[in-house]
Amino acid sequence: MDKNKKHSFETMAIHAGGGKNANNALNPPIYQTSTFVFDNIEHVEKVMSFESDDYVYTRGNNPTLRLFENRMTALEEGKGAVAFASGMAAISSVLFSLLKPGDNVIVNKTLYGSSYNVVTHVLPQYNVSYKIADLSDTDKLSELIDENTKVIYFETPSNPNLMILDIKKIASIAKEKGVKVVIDNTFATPYFQRPLTLGADVVVHSATKYICGHGDVVGGVAVSKDEDYIQSLKFDYMCEFGGVMSPFNAWLLLRGLKTLGVRMKEHEKNAMAVAKFLKSHPNVKEVYYPGLEDFKGHEIAKEQMSGFGAMISFEVKGNLEDAKKVVNSVKLAQLAVSLGDCETLIELPAAMTHRGYPKEELAKFGLTESMIRISVGLEGVQDIIEDLDSALSF
């Protein structure tokens, strides 16, 4: 690929960050090795002092991992990336790398359950405090930031209520105060949204989801425009905490990236049709999807995203038992945690992915016990709609 030419996302997802493969192979090999050998002690010194790009040990780096990191760097328009064993390894390592005892982090009121637990239960054990806020109200953000605030962390769209936050505005306020902005871009993927171009400092992903796309990998990645930070994140945190991705998983993620653009177009097309169907259904009270014109964050989503993704949440008319009936009655959709797979997945967040939130305070976090979340898959959209229609006939 001509490195001096600006290529499309789809082209970069297949070719970026690589070169000629060994033995003229079309696909990159899996370097399934834990360690690498040296020619002599002089070679050791060059590698250990970073005078050479050669490898030492897969926990530090590996050619397959490096290719995945380079490709994610290109797609997110960053300067470097670090691959991790899981999305939570990426998120927790980034937070630990930017915070020290006495600091505080501001987070949005709606977060993925495990991220919420890290912020509210793990970090405080290391004397890092937190502030939970509605970050859609940017007018109040400046007041929340104090001299000990070092990080603002959020998802947009958020999990599971699809809340849209203004990346540019939040990043602008944070920059004035010297605060780093970390954004989980899992729902949107770099195909629909690139937070680093809007002012974010670090982007994290659960690569398990859309980047993989096939439900057969657990992995994470962090991307930044600060090369020195990426060096520190890799060698001071990923290596020392040990959350390394396996070469085989990196290879599977490279395979997934090849079809990311194609998949996201189809996912979104299906999701829009499903959202409109749910919106018109007599047994549905509310639909949360950024692509709907009356959705609260629709206009901001249009500005900072090139598409609206394939995650939908909704509330049925009735109570928790009615919501349970829906998720128990689907035949095509699968009752499961996770998202971003070819299969349509359905769940009750308060009982599954977000069960760590206090039940009596769910409303404060933008959640309800009866909220249903759907990861709209790649099946025939009419089949998905008919499945939901049947389940909603209670």
Rank of each mutant, 00 (worst) to 15 (best):
E45K: 15
I300F: 02
H354V: 01
V179C: 10
G340Y: 01
S224L: 13
I346N: 03
L75G: 01
V128S: 02
T138N: 10
S158E: 09
L253F: 08
G309Y: 08
Y153T: 07
R255P: 00
K3M: 09
N108Q: 13
G307M: 02
T259D: 12
S393H: 13
G242L: 09
P195M: 06
L320I: 08
N40C: 11
K3E: 12
L345M: 06
T33W: 03
Y55T: 09
D139W: 03
V44K: 05
L75F: 05
L392Q: 09
D236S: 06
A16T: 05
V218W: 03
S142G: 08
D2K: 09
S142E: 15
M311V: 12
K276L: 14
C239Y: 12
V330G: 04
A83Q: 14
I211E: 03
I106G: 04
N148V: 02
T156D: 02
L367H: 14
F308M: 11
E347C: 06
E315I: 07
D54S: 14
K302G: 04
G199T: 07
V203I: 10
V202I: 15
F68N: 01
Q334K: 12
D146K: 11
L67S: 08
S136R: 14
K168V: 05
E360V: 11
F192N: 15
G377T: 03
A310Q: 09
S93Q: 01
M163D: 11
L99E: 01
M163F: 04
H205S: 14
G215Q: 12
V202M: 06
G340W: 01
S313G: 09
V44S: 11
G256Q: 06
L260I: 13
I384L: 03
L67Y: 10
L196W: 02
G307W: 00
F277H: 02
Q32E: 15
S375L: 11
K317I: 15
N70G: 03
N159H: 09
M88N: 15
R263T: 05
N185H: 04
D146A: 09
G340N: 00
E369G: 05
V47D: 09
D341P: 00
G113L: 14
A222I: 08
I384W: 02
L75M: 07
M48T: 15
D294M: 07
V47Q: 07
T73C: 09
I211N: 03
G220P: 12
T120L: 03
Q304Y: 03
L67N: 06
T344K: 01
S206K: 06
K285L: 14
G243I: 00
S34L: 14
P160L: 02
P63R: 05
V119D: 01
G102Q: 10
P290S: 05
Y126W: 06
F277K: 04
G60H: 04
Y153R: 04
H7A: 12
A25S: 15
A351Q: 12
V107L: 05
K331P: 02
E379D: 15
Q334P: 00
K177D: 13
E10S: 15
E51R: 15
H267I: 01
D341N: 12
Y57G: 06
L388M: 14
D134N: 15
V179W: 09
R255K: 14
R59S: 15
M352E: 11
F68E: 04
V119W: 08
